[in-house]
Computed example of a mutant assay.
Amino acid sequence: MDVPAELKELSATLASIEAVVDLDALRREIADLETQAAEPTLWDDVENAQRVTSRLSYAQGEVRRTEDLRRRLDDAQTLYDLGVEMDDADSRTEAECELVSLRRAIDELEVRTLLSGEYDAREALVTIRAEAGGVDAADFAEMLLRMYARWAERHSYSIDALDTSYAEEAGIKSATIQVKAPYAYGTLSVEQGTHRLVRISPFDNQGRRQTSFVGVEVLPVVEQSDHVEIADDDLRVDVYRSSGKGGQGVNTTDSAVRITHLPTGIVVTCQNERSQIQNRASAMNVLQARLLERRREEEQSAMNALKDGSNSWGNQMRSYVLHPYQMVKDLRTDFEVGNPQAVLDGEIDGFIEAGIRWRRAAETTPA
């Protein structure tokens, strides 16, 4: 190993990561989040409190991880220089071993900087569905559900089980979990597609080899609120006299209100209340509801586009072979390991990192 060249290359890679991560901005964000977290009323709004604490934990972890790598790299440089100066072979060997570990850790951190898609920073909804293969597919689906749960556990990510449909004989028909961690969607999105298992079926009395298939769908968690901001400049408000039945006061004042939302062309009217102020408030409530529904429809369309568009990455994207040999191989990246049990126990970071790099290369390669 050319240690000086390796040290120089790793230092340059880490410097580019530090620039992308923007440690100073993260430290400012941490200070702000710590102030919010110290507020006595923080947990009055549980959803906001969870967002604040989750983001704080993530930001602190990012800074700590990056600073630790820089410290280790500096220590390795010092150790190697000391070994050369003192002609100490043990120090030089120790520095070389540390560089191997550092290369792996820095490569892993570098992958995170490739997650720059519009939804990549979101939490993830992972849905696992048994496809062809009968009871073996249902059993395989449960194996994959456990795999993602163990992966999340290894990274100290919390998950919520949102829905599970159990199969009659064994395993599951489908399950949906929410992985509650920043960048969970960007990280896990490369897991989307069809996973294939080849093994001797434990459900076949004749011990025959069975191939089964499970579909994995990964979507970002949609961030919604029940309030839509409406700029005054986007509204045209017309007032006119109420018409029709209404009793005293109708047709005597300009109390009816028509509001046009200029960007969308949505028009709402209200004339049921006696005062213009009340009618305007009621009309705004109706407009809010219509705009919220419109936004939800657009978000659903965006989710469907993500789902449909990901098929180009999917189909049979990974094979898990337990017989006649032992191997797990990603069919897009050719990344493979010879220990399927470790993979099914949640050791999938190598596949995820290879998938993210493969996707970025595909996105940046001219058609």
Rank of each mutant, 00 (worst) to 15 (best):
V3D: 10
T35H: 15
L99G: 11
I352G: 01
S282Q: 14
E94Q: 13
V135S: 09
R280T: 09
D160W: 07
L69F: 03
E62T: 10
E298C: 02
E297I: 08
G265Y: 01
L287G: 14
Q36G: 07
M147D: 02
D163V: 00
L291Q: 06
E347Q: 04
P340H: 08
A361H: 05
A256Q: 11
R280N: 08
Y80R: 14
N311M: 10
G117Y: 02
G83H: 03
D87E: 10
T264R: 12
L322G: 06
R294M: 13
S11L: 06
D136Y: 14
V126P: 00
F335S: 03
R196H: 03
A281T: 07
L291D: 04
R258W: 08
E363P: 01
P220K: 02
A31H: 11
T269P: 15
G117M: 00
V198P: 04
R64F: 07
G265W: 01
F203H: 15
V20E: 15
E98S: 13
D107S: 01
Y166F: 12
D90V: 09
L7M: 03
A149D: 09
A59M: 04
D2K: 06
A256C: 10
Q341A: 14
V286Y: 15
M147E: 02
R103Q: 15
E217L: 10
T253L: 10
Q276C: 12
E347T: 00
R359D: 12
A137R: 06
V239M: 13
S255K: 08
D24K: 15
D349V: 02
Q50Y: 12
E169H: 13
R154D: 06
A5T: 00
E118F: 07
G207P: 11
R154Y: 04
S310W: 02
D32I: 14
Y157W: 13
A152S: 05
F203P: 12
E293W: 05
R258N: 04
R71T: 11
L115T: 00
R104G: 09
L109M: 08
A38R: 05
D68H: 12
P340K: 11
D254Y: 07
L306N: 02
T269I: 14
Q192W: 07
P40L: 05
T269R: 15
I17C: 01
I348G: 01
E47V: 09
D233V: 12
L331E: 00
R199V: 12
F203Y: 12
R28P: 10
D45R: 13
G134D: 05
A89L: 09
E110T: 03
N272Y: 15
T365V: 04
E47H: 11
R357D: 00
S243M: 12
P340I: 09
L99E: 10
Y240L: 06
V21H: 14
L56I: 02
G244K: 10
D74H: 03
M143T: 04
F213S: 14
V135D: 15
H195F: 05
A15S: 10
D87P: 02
A59C: 03
G249Y: 09
I352D: 00
E47D: 15
K8I: 13
R51Q: 15
M327G: 01
P340V: 07
L42Q: 04
Y148I: 00
R332D: 01
S212T: 10
R208L: 13
E96C: 11
K180H: 13
Q248K: 15
L219F: 05
E108S: 09
S57W: 09
L23P: 01
